[in-house]
């Protein structure tokens, strides 16, 4: 018996938690519980990110996803949390159809996961030799458009393809602006006068 390789154990732990709570989200009928499970699942996912050496992204995951997106969702839950919406029963036939389709999908995806040779595990010695490097600086530079890992790339064709993310970084801010204006517009309480066509339709 070989010595236990701790990162793998942690992987099992985190992936187990995130998968288990993902199933929890899926199977639970209670919206409040679902939100809670989702928080735990996403948080465990950030653990997976840390394990893969993506510490900054892991932190972002915790902050934006778990902190931000979920607060938003929970906010929504609270806004609509009347007794009758807490639990909604899904018709059994839908479950079965969903599980059949989902099972097929899962099967295809899992077999895909195992079918690329490059995706198999490294040797233990090889894996232990990998040195953790700081990711924040390269990430920050990458967002500014400078890929500091670019000179290290031996393959010239690949080096050309290493793009900086300045464009996305800038354009996404405009996108967020537009999206927030849109969301604010919809969420604004004031009801608008309807278009003429609406009157015929509004009677329904």
């Amino acid at each position: 018996m070989q010595e236990i390789y701790w990162p793998s154990v942690f992987f099992l732990l985190f992936s187990g938690i995130s998968c288990a709570f993902a199933v929890g989200v899926l199977l639970s009928q209670n919206i409040v519980r679902m939100a809670f499970y989702l928080v735990l699942s996403l948080a465990a996912t950030s653990g997976l990110f840390f394990l893969a050496g993506a510490d900054f992204v892991g932190a972002m995951q915790l902050m934006i996803y778990v902190g931000g997106t979920l607060v938003l969702l929970i906010f929504g839950v609270m806004l609509t949390s009347q007794e009758r919406f807490i639990e909604m029963h899904t018709w059994a036939g839908d479950w079965v159809k969903a599980f059949l389709a989902g099972g097929a999908l899962l099967f295809i995806l899992v077999s895909a996961a195992f079918s690329v040779p490059a995706w198999q595990s490294m040797d233990r010695a090889e894996a232990e030799a990998v040195v953790a490097s700081k990711t924040v600086t390269p990430l920050g530079m990458g967002l500014l458009g400078v890929r500091v890992d670019k000179p290290e790339e031996p393959d010239a064709a690949r080096r050309d393809g290493m793009a900086g993310y300045l464009f996305q970084f800038e354009i996404v801010s405009v996108h967020l602006l537009v999206v927030l204006i849109g969301a604010a517009y919809l969420a604004r309480a004031k009801r608008k006068r309807d278009l003429p066509a609406v009157q015929s339709d509004g009677s329904q």
Partner: peptide, 15 residues
């Protein structure tokens, strides 16, 4: 438990 995990394992989790 004893061997490093690979990309495939992550992909299974994500799948």
């Amino acid at each position: 438990l004893t061997e490093p995990i690979g990309v495939a394992h992550y992909v299974v989790v994500s799948a």
